[in-house]
């Protein structure tokens, strides 16, 4: 058993001319819940797909428990994709059969108990389930494996706050203690409390990797507030804030210079 569960060195992924990941060097240990944070298009899903072996890197290397992605790593990685990939005529029961056949670390009893707790009918077709129920069912399947690495791509996007709590509690209550959970999301304030560590991805590069409490200690603010600062973009418009009012001018985009404030004709200045 390697000490570091994930090691990426000089990882790059291009789609034609577009660079999705520029140069990612990353080490993630065991027994942690890690947030993979970044705005849309920053490379979160690409990185996760590379880690599960669904994509091949353009350059660089990935090691999971010391091995390149392949049959071994797939047996220890439990992946929740960002969208439903099951045929919608299937029932919860069919899916359990599926998982039982595919993964020897799948604990069916556990999955069934979790469905029962949720009041989910085992013979209900996916087609007839609400979006939230589908998400919960998928998460139950993924978390019922005794995997070493759980890769959860946007597990709480698009569900209501109560469903988010259910999903986060399910993750907290069911991950394997020697295993690591990677959660990609941009809903930071919802997940911040459950994370040990965060990785900020910006335009295909890791701009920060730190523990949540270290960020709070050194910055005096939450990870959510820091994220808003690091990824702040200034919208174009007549009423753009004057540069003086930016509380984080250092993070403002270099190119887009806001015009000098227009003379205010209405008299009342928006402070």
């Amino acid at each position: 058993m390697e000490e570091n569960l994930i090691v990426c060195t000089g990882l790059q992924k291009r789609f034609g001319n577009a660079a999705a990941l520029r140069k990612v060097d990353l080490t993630v240990g065991r027994g942690k819940i890690v947030g993979l944070l970044g705005p849309n298009g920053s490379g979160k899903t690409t990185l996760i797909k590379l880690l599960c072996g669904l994509l091949q890197p353009t350059a660089g290397e990935i090691r999971i428990d010391g091995q390149a992605p392949g049959p071994y790593t797939k047996s220890i990685v439990s992946y929740l994709p960002d969208r439903m990939y099951f045929a919608d005529w299937m029932t919860a029961n069919d899916l359990m059969d599926f998982f039982e056949d595919f993964y020897k670390d799948f604990r069916r009893q556990k999955a069934e108990a979790m469905c029962a707790a949720l009041g989910l009918q085992m013979n209900q077709r996916i087609k007839t389930m609400s979006k939230g129920t589908k998400e919960k069912l998928q998460l139950i399947l993924v978390m019922s494996r005794e995997a070493q690495l759980y890769l959860l791509d946007e597990p709480i996007a698009g569900v209501d706050p109560a469903a988010r709590d259910f999903i986060l509690d399910t993750i907290l209550g069911n991950y394997n203690e020697n295993g690591t959970v990677v959660i990609s999301t941009h809903l930071i304030s919802d997940v911040e409390k459950v994370l040990d560590e965060v990785i900020f991805l910006k335009k295909g590069e890791v701009v920060r990797q730190d523990t949540v409490d270290h960020i709070r200690e050194t910055e005096g603010k939450s990870v959510d507030a820091l994220f808003r600062e690091v990824f702040r973009t200034v919208p174009y418009g007549e009423y753009m804030p004057h540069p003086r009012e930016w509380d984080c001018a250092a993070h403002a985009p270099e190119k887009l210079e806001p015009p000098a404030r227009a003379e205010n004709q209405e008299g009342g200045d928006a402070q």
Binding site: G31, I33, L172, G173, V194, D196, D213
Partner: peptide
Amino acid sequence: LAAEAGVNPNTMQR
């Protein structure tokens, strides 16, 4: 305790 507070077990441990 961690589950009750909805926080990471390592944080509660600390």
